Amino acid sequence: MPPLLDTRPTALAVDEWRAREAAYQRRMDSWLEPHRQRRRDGVAHPVLDFLFTYYSETPGRLRRWHPGLGTALAGTAARERLDWPMYAEVAATTPDGDPVPAVGLDRPAFLAKRRDAAAWIEGLLAATAGRPAQFGCFGLHEWAMLYRPGAGEVRHEQLPLRLGQDGTDAVVEQHRVQCSHIDAFRFFTQAARPRNTLTPTRETQPQLEQPGCLHATMDLYKWAYKLSPAVPGELLADCFALASDVRELDMRASPYDLSAAGYEPVAIETPAGKAQYVAAQRGFATRGGDLRQRLLTVCRDLLGTDGASTVGW
């Protein structure tokens, strides 16, 4: 077991961490408040609900700002966090190096409960970062989820299809389907599965996941909240923002007609639509690459590793 880091966390003064907390909450409320209002009104959103249903983090937990590993909170106001999971009194230092009592991440408790999970996440992120991005899928995973559906396989029945069922089936049949992500592939219809060039499984995820994949990019948000409260709130918010942007492209490039919800289609069945999709996908891969490295740093600081060897892969 690697030794705990000897570096003491840096304590933030009350005014500083309260300001960061407030800024984070304002940022997250731009997504959380509309979601809560829709939920109160009983109104579903065909694009954004995914961020709160497929992903398991609750709005209440999302609104909690954390300083993350290596930073602690000074002042008596921070003591309320001693009732939060994975927080404890820690020996910290001021930015000038003076010792000061503070409240921060309980790293030994975190590792006792989540070491294996953090090592798994580190392995997956490192494996994904270590291979080139692929940009030839054109979002066909969403089409394959609707290809010649059998009983019980129709998704989002309330949403109309831009090209109808026959047109949707034809797009799948006219393209090479090459989805590498297990959590997209597992929703393919039975008829679509044999058409995929790969057969992703949970066991092969580290061998197949690649940084151009929209679902791998959205999942950076999942890994960020799975590592909470070791991940700084600002990094979590950056991952959520990227997931929200990617989700929009994912659905605009899908077979669904979302014009009633204000979304123009990315018609990937056309050359222009393909070019539009790939351009956006490349931008997301660049943003995701930066966030993936920041998450890897958190994992390696937690585990006391340097990336030279990765547990489990």
Score class of each variant (00 low, 15 high):
Met251Pro: 00
Gly136Lys: 01
Cys179Phe: 07
Pro206His: 12
Arg36Tyr: 03
Leu227Val: 10
Asp6Met: 12
Asp29Ala: 15
Arg294Asn: 08
Thr305Cys: 13
Met28Pro: 02
Ala119Leu: 13
Tyr147Arg: 14
Ala308Asp: 13
Arg115Asp: 11
Val154Gly: 01
Gln293Gly: 14
Pro95Thr: 08
Trp84Leu: 06
Leu161Glu: 12
Gln165Thr: 13
Asp116Gln: 12
Met86Gly: 06
Gln190Gly: 12
Ala216Phe: 10
Thr93Phe: 07
Gly312Ile: 07
Pro9His: 08
Leu4Lys: 06
Gln210Met: 13
Ala127Asn: 12
Tyr54Ser: 03
Ser309Tyr: 06
Ala237Gln: 10
His66Ser: 11
Phe110Cys: 03
Tyr221Ser: 02
Leu159Val: 07
Thr201Tyr: 10
Arg292Val: 02
Val172Ala: 13
Val172Thr: 04
Leu4Phe: 14
Arg282Ser: 01
Thr7Cys: 03
Val172Ser: 09
Ser180Gln: 14
Thr10Pro: 00
Phe188Thr: 04
Arg287Cys: 03
His35Thr: 11
Leu163His: 11
Gly136Met: 11
Val246Ala: 07
Asp183His: 05
Val171Asp: 02
Ala191Cys: 03
Leu48Cys: 04
His156Asn: 14
Thr58Asn: 12
Pro200Asn: 13
Ala127Leu: 14
Ala279Cys: 02
Ala280Val: 01
Gly288Glu: 03
Tyr87Arg: 13
Arg287Val: 09
Thr310Lys: 10
Ala133Ser: 08
Leu249Val: 07
Asp29Gln: 14
Ala216Gly: 08
Pro95Leu: 10
Thr7Pro: 00
Thr53Trp: 05
Ala78Tyr: 00
Leu249Thr: 08
Arg39Val: 09
Asp29Phe: 10
Ala237Arg: 04
Trp223Thr: 01
Pro232Leu: 11
Phe188Cys: 06
Gln178Gly: 10
Leu124Asn: 07
Arg18Val: 13
Leu235Lys: 02
Pro271Gln: 11
Tyr87Lys: 11
Asp250Lys: 01
Glu122Tyr: 06
Arg114Asp: 13
Trp84Gly: 00
Val47Ile: 15
Ala267Tyr: 11
Thr199Asp: 07
Ala72Trp: 09
Tyr256Lys: 00
Gln281Leu: 01
Thr168Ala: 10
Thr168Gly: 04
His141Cys: 13
Gly152Met: 09
Gln190Asn: 04
Met251Glu: 08
Arg79Trp: 01
Asp250Ile: 08
Asp290Val: 15
Thr310Pro: 00
Gly42Thr: 11
Arg64Ala: 08
Tyr55Met: 05
Leu214Pro: 02
Gly262Val: 07
Trp223Val: 03
Met1Lys: 14
Ala151Trp: 14
Leu235Asn: 05
Trp17Phe: 02
Pro108Lys: 12
Pro9Ser: 11
Asp245Asn: 03
Ala230Val: 04
Gly104Thr: 01
Tyr225Ser: 06
Gly104Asn: 00
Val103Tyr: 03
Asp6Thr: 15
Ala279Thr: 00
Phe187Val: 04
Ala102Lys: 02
Ala22Gln: 07
Glu16Gly: 03
Ala119Trp: 13
Tyr87Thr: 07
Thr58Lys: 14
Ala216Trp: 05
Pro149His: 08
Leu32Gly: 00
Phe110Ser: 02
Cys213Asn: 09
Leu214Gln: 10
Tyr24Glu: 04
Ala92Cys: 07
Tyr147Gln: 12
Leu111Gly: 10
Ala260Ser: 08
Tyr225Gln: 03
Asp41Phe: 04
Arg148Gln: 15
